[in-house]
């Protein structure tokens, strides 16, 4: 059981990195919209797992995407931030419920899943574009890019999560 979970996580890791660098980094919709779809890794990651492993994994997830897209370590910084904040976000979205053994992402309402994903994406993108532009004279550009790219990631993320979610009973 443990093995199949870890296998799934590793497989997801590799597929999401490849999907990100080979497909979504080349999308350039309207010139600059490249959804950062690899964040779904954090959305799908099992809740009852060791947090240390999770944060380290997320760091490497970001770093791999960075290496491929020549973005220094911006993705790593943004991803490790949301990895750290994930329990806080979950407590905010799902209430104390999520700490129970029986809690499953699939059992929560659509609205909760949406909010959870949206918060992950917005925080990630905010950190990402702040670091990318890194001059606060351009704060309008940061907000604009965060807003537009967040929406595109959110739409695609919802599509993917619906497409690949395990069946509800």
């Amino acid at each position: 059981m443990i093995n199949s979970t870890s296998f799934l996580i590793v497989l997801r890791f590799i597929l999401l990195v490849l999907l990100q660098v080979l497909v979504f980094n080349k999308l350039n919709f309207f010139g600059y919209i490249n959804p950062l779809i690899y964040i779904l890794f954090l959305y799908w990651y099992p809740i009852k797992q060791n947090r240390t492993t999770f944060i380290i994994l997320c760091f490497f997830l970001g770093l791999f995407v960075d290496i491929f897209s020549d973005t220094l370590a911006i993705n790593a910084a943004a991803t490790v931030t949301i990895a750290y904040l994930r329990p806080t976000i979950m407590r905010f979205v799902f209430g104390v419920n999520y700490e129970f053994q029986s809690f499953k992402l699939n059992n929560s309402t659509k609205a909760q899943q949406f909010t959870f994903l949206a918060l992950l994406i917005i925080i990630h993108h905010l950190v990402y574009f702040t670091l990318e532009i890194f001059s606060f004279s351009n704060s309008l550009l940061i907000l604009q890019k965060t807003f537009v790219v967040s929406i595109s990631t959110l739409i695609l993320g919802m599509l993917f999560s619906t497409l690949f979610s395990s069946k509800k009973e």
């Binding site: 240390t52 220094l72 370590a73 931030t81 670091l131």
Partner: peptide, 20 residues
Amino acid sequence: KIFLLYLFLLLISFIFTFQS
């Protein structure tokens, strides 16, 4: 420890980012 790990990893990524 989680928070410290987070700070540590964030620091590494900042070093990579600003060193360049």
